[in-house]
Design a protein around this nucleic acid. Sequence first.
DNA 1: GCATGTGAATGGATTCACAGCT
DNA 2: AGCTGTGAATCCATTCACATGC
Lengths: 221, 221
Amino acid sequence: MGRTANSDREGISELTTGRLSVYLRCLTFLESQGQKTVSSHELAEKFHLNSAQIRKDLACFGEFGTRGVGYDVSRLRRQLVETLGIDRVRNAIIVGAGNLGMALADYAGFNSNGFHIVAMLDTDASKTGKTSRQGIPVVAWERLGELVRRNRVDIGIIAVPGEHAQHVYDALADAGVLAVLNFAPVQIRLRHGVKVKSVDLRINLESLSFHLKNVEDGVIA
Amino acid sequence: MGRTANSDREGISELTTGRLSVYLRCLTFLESQGQKTVSSHELAEKFHLNSAQIRKDLACFGEFGTRGVGYDVSRLRRQLVETLGIDRVRNAIIVGAGNLGMALADYAGFNSNGFHIVAMLDTDASKTGKTSRQGIPVVAWERLGELVRRNRVDIGIIAVPGEHAQHVYDALADAGVLAVLNFAPVQIRLRHGVKVKSVDLRINLESLSFHLKNVEDGVIA
DNA sequence: GCATGTGAATGGATTCACAGCT
DNA sequence: AGCTGTGAATCCATTCACATGC
């Protein structure tokens, strides 16, 4: 079934949206360089992708290209910004003000272009009242509900040890958060309507280890 | 083509090895609980997976199960540890001693069960000589080659801003590092024999944003 | 002519369903 | 009977190839 503009948006895979993010970044760069127009082939070369895939990805949301010419850089960029829903600022909170939480709070990509970290939450009273280097405050865990309501927070970021992750997720869901980025290495039991995306740092290291082992064993040239 | 034990290891996808890591974690837990045996159905329930997939994943490396019974928890765990190549310690260095580098250096999953962070490297002289809270030292960038040689480092972790990532990758490759975990949001131009795995934190947030937008627009219930 | 947009073909990964072992 | 291991079937993503339009 051919996918037409604006229909069937839920059928779009995460693989596709991930690539849209990558294209967006590239277009932002090209725009800053003053480039007016770009073809799917040109984009395909920059990443190691197939040009047809790029065209298909972009065609999901309408026809933005001009045959014989390519895509208008600025227009396509604006379109992707809108498609990804980052044409307005989304507020997020981080749960866990340990090393990882602190690092994420000050991570440039989390505090620009559509995202804003409102605060970190922690149960450790010795941490509350302090701020990250960039000035993101650490707030008592009990204030979760209030914070979410007052700041229209719709993203929660879990940066606590694995054993507390499920509890934090449930509390975030209760507070009204609709999307969660989970850094704890556990499988979260989902609530209806509260999306989770997990980033498992350890798995990536183990994957490299697997590769190294194969190199050492001579399985790979 | 049916895959048989120990043959064709390079043909195993990252999706599979990622799941192996997840199984391993589960088995470690089950072993600590004293459970002796586990079936593919039981594992399938814990994560939201299909039991046939689990059996297929495990069968890539040999026949570890017993028909009518299931898998021996301890034996399978040891097998996965060996398969993933974490039955010995791999040394890693982190390039970039900013917020992210510091957080990763002290991240529990990076300093246990097969991995050891030797040091962080940074060009900023005001950072060198210091250590993370857990005591991982920050060392001058110029000492890269020496450090890699002396400590048999085979994993490099890139935690520098995007504009320096390619340069860092090339330097790591020159120094003899064989596998790189990249946190910079850029497409790395690969060198032969030096594997990269990229973790793009920003893309994950944008993916959640896309989901939120669709919820708001009523595309999803 | 040139590059998009898209059906058709391919290639992989997942799931089904059952033969085979304990 | 129960559960693994696996060919066959299905599903999904990627790539090809070309009709379409600038």
